[in-house]
Design a protein around this nucleic acid. Structure first.
Length: 323
DNA sequence: CACCAGGCAAGCC
DNA sequence: GGCTTGCATGGT
């Protein structure tokens, strides 16, 4: 029990909690893993629903691939994930990539059942509904550079078009690799983007955001922006540093803190969150973003980021406050 | 045609 | 500090 509570706020490292690290079958306290014919099979993991994970606006590079499957690219590797009858399968991957990339990317070391219990233990009917709708949400641990550029692109944009722009960025400027007989592209490096002109970048149709992308890439390459340094800063300092980047303001920096830097207390307030918070907690009366942020900080604290994802998914599924 | 989309920068007070 | 406006593009 002590371990479970501990796991809410930390993350179980793959290597730390597996009983038998040398065999092809492993357990940790919240799931069972097997490596069978180039596939990773995960069972005894109930807090995992692909639609919730990949359709809650945190990640723009995974798409449905048939029933109960998604396929996408992260850290330069592509994986097809399917989930059916309590069995999650990561197809055509290696144990190495599972340990080094996907285990952490999918946040498999965190106990989301405990998080959901904690968020709803106060008897908040709003959060109970939200958690019911998005019960399989997990917060992905994404690459910082990709998260920075992706959320610069997200400003004043809609999710389908964000995905389209990022897709064009990768297919035009990323490195190709083959997976299951098809070609996929990595997210382009800072060096690659920094070498482009604004005109080159025009093919991705990013609109007014193109200059932010180019400026950021150039400054990352020159060292003026040090992402490694930012990742080791305290959350307030990291936020200040991110907000110095052209094109990154309050909301985008909160998204980067949550999705790219693992700061789970970060509570990004966008138009959807603003609407659902006003509707559910403020008698549907308009509030400033600052008021909503402070309310969320008091109410959700360390779990603000998780609460935000459940609310965001719930708001969009039920179109709360729209019409 | 207007209005909006996981906002932000710049210019104003 | 807070408030307004313009911004690229594509969809409704």
């Amino acid at each position: 029990m002590k371990l479970l509570l501990f796991a809410i706020f930390t993350k179980l490292k793959y290597f730390d909690y597996f009983l038998d690290n040398s065999s092809r079958m492993c357990y940790n306290i919240i799931m069972k893993t097997e490596f069978i014919d180039n596939d990773i099979h995960i069972t005894e993991q109930d807090d995992f629903i692909l639609q919730h994970i990949f359709d809650c606006g945190q990640c723009f590079r995974f798409d449905p691939d048939g029933d109960n499957s998604y396929i996408g690219t992260a850290f330069g590797k592509t994986v097809k994930i399917s989930a059916e009858n309590g069995r999650i399968i990561l197809h055509d991957t290696s144990m190495e990539d599972f340990k080094n990339i996907w285990y952490d990317y999918l946040d498999l070391g965190r106990d989301y059942s405990a998080i959901k219990r904690k968020l709803t233990e106060g008897g908040d009917p709003v959060m109970e509904e939200a958690v019911k709708y998005g019960s399989g949400i997990r917060i992905l641990n994404q690459e910082l550079w990709e998260t920075v550029i992706s959320f610069i692109i997200s400003a004043s944009n809609n999710i389908p078009r964000i995905k389209k722009i990022i897709g064009l960025l990768c297919s035009n400027f990323g490195e190709p690799h083959t997976y299951r007989g098809k070609i996929y592209y990595s997210f382009p490096s800072p060096e690659r983007i920094a070498g482009l002109s604004l005109e080159d970048l025009g093919v991705i149709r990013a609109g007014f955001r193109d200059k932010y992308i180019l400026d950021c890439a150039k400054k990352v390459v020159s060292g003026e922006i040090d992402l490694a340094a930012i990742s080791s800063m305290s959350t307030p300092d990291a936020k200040k540093a991110l907000m110095k980047i052209w094109g990154i303001g309050n909301k985008v920096s909160d998204c980067i803190l949550l999705f790219g830097l693992g700061r789970c207390d970060s509570f990004p307030v966008d138009v959807w969150i603003k609407r659902i918070m006003e509707y559910c907690y403020f008698d549907n009366t308009p509030q400033s973003i600052k008021t909503i942020s402070e309310f969320a900080e008091n109410k959700f604290g360390e779990l603000g980021g998780m609460a935000q994802q459940y609310l965001f998914f719930y708001a969009r599924e039920c179109r709360i406050g729209v019409e």
